[in-house]
Every structure is written in structure tokens, then in C-alpha cells.
Design a protein around this nucleic acid. Structure first.
Length: 598
RNA sequence: GGCCCGGUAGUUCAGUUGGUUAGAAUGCUAGCCUGUCACGCUAGAGGUCAGGGGUUCGAGCCCCCUCCGGGUCGCCA
């Protein structure tokens, strides 16, 4: 039978007592992290979220009962110890332990709870399968590195709240039971019992509510908001995730950027003591794509893309010429540092790699000391080869890797990914630099060939650039948006836009997207109705909190910064959600299901 | 939906060409031990080889299907 607290009160966290407490009585409570029984002397490592303190039980200094009780302690028992803090004698100090200079010599002991042998080890260097860790998540969360991550997450939300509060932002909650939004990600639906056959959707973001808050006059809003998207998971994507969401009135783009780069600078200073140079660099979307093949470029290293279409457009290599004729391009990256020596096997691997991104293949040109080694040299004149090398800045020892495709999107995707892959393999990514920048001037619209119409690249409330409005009817593809993304080390950590606040412009936008008036009213009527009543100019941004925490803690998986995450099938291995429910619940909701029953 | 990787004691793994009773480390249990800190020593327990089917005299190993986990492409306004 476990002991009761009976008035015992903890005086310190386990790792807290230091020189001041030496010689004094302390009362610690925590989990047994280790036990070593030497017969007449027992050592227990006592752990809580602060760390571990060694507790010593000395048979000769304790009542028989107390010592006998101490001998029953096993890992993960919950223990309360009253004792005296001692400085350890020289030679007994444990250098590997933060509290290794001290120990508590126990006088009294309570075992508050016992534990079965845990299925995973409670320690940082753990190679247990994640499947097992997630099933016993509450044990996994006892590990110091997991506690460190969640404590850092808390620190980040604290800094967020205080920064935006100082800047005059109000935190206002928006509904979780909301209206399904067409376009965009798949919604999680919640059936209505009171109105059979109707559904709420869990919010993909508080987008429309925060815009309505602007209209309502709460001119600076923020919220740490849970969002839901029913799409496939990734190492950095969960179906439910958290955004630092904000919106401001009476602002244009630069006002939003300024507040938010101020935030990221404060955040990195307070969490990592890292100094960010402001203002952040800005890169247009087009420049980002042309130089890095990505709208979230990692600019900590070079390997920039180089367009050689002009040089090869008349060559005899049909792979290149066909790509250019189809409206695409031929581009390359220059891998320096003697990469011309890459063995054939490595090049084949890279060729396989770009195929993931739908590139048909990889051409290469190695400038070896003993001559040119090139997959397509015989189709090119010496002049053409020289122009390519000049454009790519190639020197002896360099390796040029080419992708050609009739679609520029394929060339960008393949080379953008290849750039990252090569940088990773050659260790070109500096670890201690934090690379922050804005990508701006995104296209407003994206053409979808399957559907045969334009879609909003960001969302349909994003404002076009003032000077591009005139092209919305004539050439929608060239209209740029007042949209912006913040990029950190090649990760999109936040994004937003200035919104449309004029009804006429909003209607023009819906027309461009091919919505009839009825459709638009049906889908966004409440917003359009509201916008009749004096919407202020406004815009905002949302940061992905989970990704921010990942980057700051250097976690390799988003699951390591979320207390209770989901696995790839969007289920929770601990609770076994989602699960079948009683027929009675389904009947109440008027839901028939063809899926397997309980 | 596609591609790639993985699943053997509680945990991490090994397991030869298909061949006797499936091993190691660690953890666990018991005993001994007063300065351990990866404590040590002695003894012991512990297996649905993910599941199902097939080939074979014989399957952890070969074949097929399913399930589970990871990465990724598509998808994620």
C-alpha cells in the first residue's frame, strides 16, 4: 500500500538545491531514475522535471523499517524523501551530472506510488521504436529531452503573448465549430445532432473570423490557435496543429512585415540568445524560384540554379530542345569542390533522386583535369559548352547537374530538391547560422490544368498588388499578390497577406476564380455581407508554432515537440483514436456507415 | 493513391545455404556486497519470430496477401 502525503510538502525541485542548502533539510519528491543497492548502502537517483538528485540511504544511520522500505524502491516508483543536503567528498563527485557535487542523505522516506517495470527506458539516448514510445507517451514524456522540448514550447508561447501584448494586440478566441470552407485543404467534419444531415467543420485557420474582428474594430488581434487539416501527414505536418495567428487594421504590407520580423528577432533572442539583423532580407517569389528552385529557399549555402536554355536552344540534344520548345527550360546547379570526381554510382543515385520530382533524368558535365566528361557533349559545339560553363561559373573540378523539362515547375522542383540533397551530402549547410528572409510578390493565382481554371495561390481574400489589378481580367497569371512568407533555414515558418477590403475588388476576384455570384454568396456570403459595412484595410500573418518549436529545439520530427501527436495514419497510438462508436451515437446523429462496426 | 525502408525476449539487435532445444546485450526476479553513479558477483525467469496462407520431409529465413510503424511524391487555398 502506497504512502499518503500526510502533510509532507516539497521544498525544492530535485536539481534545485545548491551551496545555499548544504547542511539544511530538504524534502524532495520525484520518480526513481536509478537504484543501486550495495547491501548496507542504497543510492537512488530521484528525478523530476528539473533534473536528478542522488539520494543516499545509509543502513547505520536509519531506522530498520526505513532502510527496508528503501530497498524496495525500483525504477519509476514515486518517492518522497526528507533528508539533508551534503556536498560530496572529493573523488565522489559525478562530473556527468548537473547535481553531481551534492547528495541528499535521507532521514525519512515515503513511497507514494509504485510502478511496474516500464516498457521503455526513461533516458535521452533512446533508440526504442517510435511506435512503442507513442503507445506509452506519458513515459516517453518523462525523458529529459522531451521535457526540454515542451518547456521550450512553453517559453515560445510566453514570449509570443508578451510581445504581441506589448504591441497592443488583443487575444480573442474564435470558434472551433465552424463552417466548412471550400477550396483549400480537406475539412474535418463534425455532425450536428440538432440539425441532422448538417455538419460543422473544424477550422483550417481562423482566417475569416479574424477578418471579421478587423471589421468589428478590434484592430490588432492575435491568437494561439489550434487548426485542423485532413491531409496526409509528414515529418513536419500533423492533422491538428497550432498557429500563432494575427491580424492588423489600417496597415499595408510593410507594417505587417515589420511587426513580425520584430517578433521573430525577439523570440530568437529570448530562446536561443541569437541576434537577428533587421530588417530581414526580401526575395521576390520569382527570384527565389530562379535562384533556388523553391519558394522557401535555404540560402545558407550556394548551389544556385543557372538557366542555360538560351545557350542550348539550338543544340542537337533533343531532350534539351524539346523542353525549351514546350515552354520549359534547361537549368543546372554547379557543384564545386572537386565534385567532377563523383563516381558514376553517385551520379546514378542523384539521377534517381530527381525522378521523385518527376524530372525525366539528370544530365551532367564534369570538368575533370584530364578533360570534359559530359552526357551530352557530342550534341554541343565548343562555343555552346563555353557559354554554359561561363554562365554557371564553372572551373576545373566542378560538376554541373542539369535538369530539362517542358514544365518549369518540374525543373524548379527537381533542382531545388537536388540542391538541398547535394548540400546535405557534402555537408555544406552551416549549422550555427539562422537564415531568415521574406519571400514576397507571390503570384495571386495558380492555373490548375485538371480543373481548367485559376485558383487562389494563398486564399481568395488575398489582395492583388495595386499596380497589377488591371491585369486581373486580361492576364490573371501575371497578377502578383500582397502575400508574403517568412522562411527560416529553408522552412516556411509563417505566411500571410494584405486582404481585399473592397467589395468590388472581392467580386472581381471571385469572377476571376470562375465563381458565379450565387456560388460566391453561397460560400462566403456572410463575409461579403459583412464587407458592406465598412471593412478597414487590413492584413495579417500566421506562424506555424510547431515548426518554430522544431527549428528552435532542432527536433527532427514534429512529433517531438507535440505532447500527444498522431502517427501517419492520423491515429493516436496511446488512445487508439479514431475508433468506432456505439450504434446509438450514430443513430442520434443520423449517420449510416459502411465502415466496419465495433 | 504511388515509391522506398522497417517489424525476432520488456527494450535494442544477431540469427550462416531452409536443418537439433531461436541467441547476445540490457532490463527484470532472487541472493550477497557501506561510496555506487553503465556499481559488482552468483543464480534464474522471460519468445504468437507482426498476422494469415502457400512451397517443402523440414520455414524466423523462400513466395503471396493483410496489418502496424517511418520517410517521401501527390495532396496540404
Amino acid at each position: 500500500m502506497a504512502d499518503l502525503l500526510q502533510g509532507w510538502k516539497r521544498t525544492h525541485y530535485c536539481a534545485e538545491p545548491t551551496q545555499n542548502e548544504v547542511g539544511r533539510e530538504v524534502l524532495l519528491m520525484g520518480w526513481a531514475d536509478s537504484w543501486r543497492n550495495l547491501g548496507a548502502l542504497i543510492f537512488i537517483g530521484l528525478r523530476d522535471r528539473s533534473g536528478v538528485m542522488q539520494i543516499t540511504f545509509d543502513e547505520s544511520a536509519l531506522p530498520k523499517e526505513t532502510f527496508k522500505l528503501a530497498a524496495t524502491i525500483r525504477n519509476e516508483y514515486v518517492v518522497a524523501v526528507k533528508g539533508t543536503l551534503y556536498e560530496r567528498a572529493q573523488g565522489m563527485v559525478n562530473e556527468h551530472m548537473a547535481t553531481g557535487k551534492y547528495e541528499v542523505r535521507a532521514a525519512e522516506l515515503k513511497i507514494l506510488s509504485i510502478s511496474e517495470t516500464p516498457p521503455i527506458y526513461i533516458q535521452d539516448d533512446l533508440d526504442t521504436a517510435e511506435q512503442v514510445r507513442l503507445k506509452y507517451r506519458y513515459l516517453d514524456l518523462r525523458r529529459p529531452c522531451m521535457q526540454k522540448n515542451l518547456i521550450m514550447r512553453n517559453k515560445i508561447t510566453q514570449v509570443t503573448h508578451s510581445y504581441f501584448a506589448e504591441k497592443g494586440f488583443l487575444e480573442i478566441e474564435t470558434p472551433m465549430l465552424a463552417k466548412s470552407t471550400p477550396e483549400g485543404a480537406r475539412d474535418y467534419l463534425v455532425p450536428s445532432r440538432v440539425q441532422p444531415g448538417k455538419f460543422y467543420a473544424l477550422p483550417q485557420s481562423p482566417q475569416q473570423f479574424k477578418q471579421l474582428l478587423m471589421l468589428a474594430g478590434y484592430d490588432r488581434y492575435m491568437q494561439i490557435a489550434r487548426c485542423f487539416r485532413d491531409e496526409d501527414l509528414r515529418a513536419d505536418r500533423q492533422p491538428e496543429f497550432t498557429q500563432i495567428d494575427l491580424e492588423m487594421s489600417f496597415v499595408d504590407r510593410d507594417d505587417v512585415l515589420e511587426v513580425n520580423e520584430g517578433f521573430i528577432a525577439r523570440l530568437l533572442k529570448e530562446t536561443l540568445d541569437y541576434d537577428v539583423q533587421l530588417p530581414l532580407r526580401r526575395l521576390s517569389y520569382q527570384e527565389a524560384m530562379d535562384r533556388y528552385g523553391s519558394d522557401k529557399p535555404d540560402t545558407r549555402y550556394g548551389l544556385e540554379l543557372c538557366d542555360v536554355s538560351e545557350a542550348v536552344k539550338d543544340c542537337g540534344f533533343s531532350v534539351f530542345t524539346a523542353a525549351i520548345e514546350a515552354g520549359g527550360s534547361v537549368r543546372c546547379i554547379n557543384v564545386k569542390d572537386g565534385a567532377a570526381q563523383f563516381p558514376r554510382k553517385k551520379l546514378d543515385e542523384l539521377a534517381e533522386f530527381v525522378k521523385i520530382y518527376r524530372a525525366k533524368g539528370l544530365a551532367w558535365m564534369g570538368l575533370k583535369a584530364d578533360g570534359l566528361q559530359c552526357t551530352f557533349a557530342k550534341f554541343l559545339t565548343e562555343d555552346q559548352i563555353n557559354v554554359i560553363q561561363q554562365k554557371a561559373g564553372a572551373e576545373q573540378g566542378d560538376l554541373l547537374l542539369f535538369v530539362a523539362d517542358g514544365k518549369n515547375s518540374v525543373v524548379y522542383a527537381a533542382l531545388g530538391a537536388l540542391r538541398q540533397e547535394v548540400a546535405k551530402r557534402l555537408n555544406l549547410v552551416p549549422e550555427d547560422v539562422i537564415d531568415l528572409l521574406w519571400v514576397v510578390d507571390f503570384p495571386l493565382l495558380e492555373y490548375d490544368e485538371e480543373e481548367g481554371r485559376f485558383f487562389a495561390m494563398h486564399h481568395p481574400f488575398t489582395s492583388p498588388m495595386d499596380e497589377d489589378i488591371e491585369y486581373m481580367d486580361t492576364d490573371p497569371g501575371r497578377v502578383r499578390a500582397k502575400a508574403y512568407d517568412m522562411v527560416m533555414n529553408g522552412n516556411e515558418i509563417g505566411g500571410g497577406s494584405i486582404r481585399i477590403h473592397s467589395s468590388q475588388l472581392q467580386e472581381k476576384m471571385f469572377r476571376t476564380l470562375g465563381f458565379s455570384k450565387e456560388e460566391a454568396w453561397n460560400r462566403f456570403g456572410f463575409l461579403m455581407e459583412a464587407f458592406k459595412y465598412g471593412p478597414p484595410p487590413h492584413g495579417g500573418l500566421a506562424f506555424g508554432l510547431d515548426r518554430l518549436v522544431m527549428l528552435i529545439t532542432k527536433a527532427s520530427s514534429i512529433r517531438d515537440v507535440i505532447a500527444f501527436p498522431k502517427v501517419q495514419t492520423a491515429s493516436c497510438l496511446m488512445t487508439n483514436a479514431p475508433d468506432v462508436v456505439d450504434q446509438k451515437q450514430l443513430d442520434e446523429l443520423c449517420i449510416a456507415t459502411t465502415a466496419p462496426k465495433a
